[in-house]
């Protein structure tokens, strides 16, 4: 009996600080997942430095991922990559790498939307059909659900993303990037709530007023007298996550979905998980959080979305693989769900 060779995809994530590589088969089994993340020494992300970092590490990262999957480069049937949205210079270097690999090795290439990748890997790994998704990361804060042929946006931030807000505050407080996990730890030590601006507009939210307020708390003469960094971290989380939970609940009531998915880097936060789980149960919806290794940016989410698309419409023409730094997720066709 001839055993059909299983098909293999190489997924490459390259939109921001993480260069992520993953090897998956076409059934969604993840054979390996390797990330190399650029950590800035000071200040924020400088696209040029990120680009240099990714250029230096891509070869090694891909080699390790293939080795961990016990395969070789010739076993790859498809390369999927993140075409946008993201930082222009970083996306460009990603596109350069995958085009080179595709042409040298004659492997079909497919571009996917990064945000959709976060949702699709969540659907796969949590076994969900049609969730309302809260996608929270350094660059995005989006409440989305599938409606009339695409992933519609029901709510989002009106200014900065929640992860970006937390990271920026953490840096002001002298903590190293990424600040999210450190703020979470600090918050666990406090129970002292300092009232902060709470801004939601329908299903949208705004974090800039909150950012200004917590930054001012650091500068106040009361800092380290009446309250400490732990208290600010606690109050910041309680406020920001209550806002996120409120708009998610509103979107849940509005869309009547029966599943809720929490995804993106900030989904790792236990307190946020607890809140989203709570409202999901209140509305009799199944709650899922994406497994930790798939929460932040990674190659598997890109690979899997590429496989879904490839099965429906085949690979992209090289001319269709230009990057798109501002690609809106509600503009993307989703043939695998129509």
């Amino acid at each position: 009996m001839v055993k059909l060779k299983r098909k293999i995809c190489l997924g490459i994530e390259c939109t921001a600080h993480t260069f992520g590589v993953s090897i998956l088969d076409f059934d969604g089994n993840v054979l390996s997942i390797v990330n190399d993340t650029y950590i800035p020494e000071t200040g924020g992300l400088h696209p040029r430095e990120v680009r240099e970092h990714h250029l230096e590490c891509f070869d090694k990262t891909i080699t390790i991922a293939i080795k961990q999957a016990n395969l070789s480069m010739k076993d790859i049937d498809l390369i999927a990559f993140s075409q946008g949205p993201g930082l222009g210079p970083v996306l460009r270097v990603g596109a350069l790498i995958v085009r080179f690999l595709s042409q040298e090795l004659k492997i079909p290439l497919i571009g996917v939307n990064h945000c959709i990748g976060h949702i699709e890997i969540g659907r796969l790994k949590c076994g969900l059909k049609d969730p309302l998704t809260l996608y929270v990361s350094g660059g995005n804060t989006i409440i989305s659900a599938f409606e009339s042929e695409s992933y519609q946006i029901f709510g989002e931030t009106l200014d900065i993303a929640v992860g970006n807000f937390i990271d920026a505050f953490a840096r002001d407080a002298g903590l190293q990037h990424p600040g999210g996990p450190k703020i979470e730890k600090l918050a666990q030590k406090s129970k002292k709530y300092i009232p902060l601006p709470y801004i939601v507009k329908g299903m949208d939210l705004s974090f800039s007023g909150l950012y200004t307020a917590v930054k001012n708390l650091l500068k106040s003469k009361d800092y380290n007298r009446r309250y400490n960094l732990g208290d600010i971290a606690y109050s910041l989380q309680e406020t920001a996550f209550a806002m996120l939970t409120e708009v998610t609940e509103r979107a849940l009531a509005h869309t009547n979905k029966t599943e809720v998915l929490l995804t993106g880097g900030v989904a790792a936060n236990k307190r946020l998980q607890e809140m989203i789980a709570y409202i999901s149960h209140e509305h009799n919806a199944k709650y899922s959080v994406v497994p930790l290794k798939y929460a932040g940016d990674n190659g598997a989410m890109i690979g899997w979305t590429g496989i879904l698309k490839y099965k429906e419409v085949g690979a992209d023409n090289i001319k269709d693989t230009t990057i798109n730094p501002k690609w809106r997720m509600d503009n993307v066709e989703i043939p695998w769900r129509s």
């Binding site: 924020g44 696209p47 946008g84 993201g86 222009g88 993303a161």
Partner: peptide, 16 residues
């Protein structure tokens, strides 16, 4: 303008 704002803003232009 509002619609374009929440979307991916290059991180160096964000509050970093």
């Amino acid at each position: 303008t509002i619609e374009s704002r929440g979307r991916y803003i290059e991180k160096n232009k964000r509050k970093n």
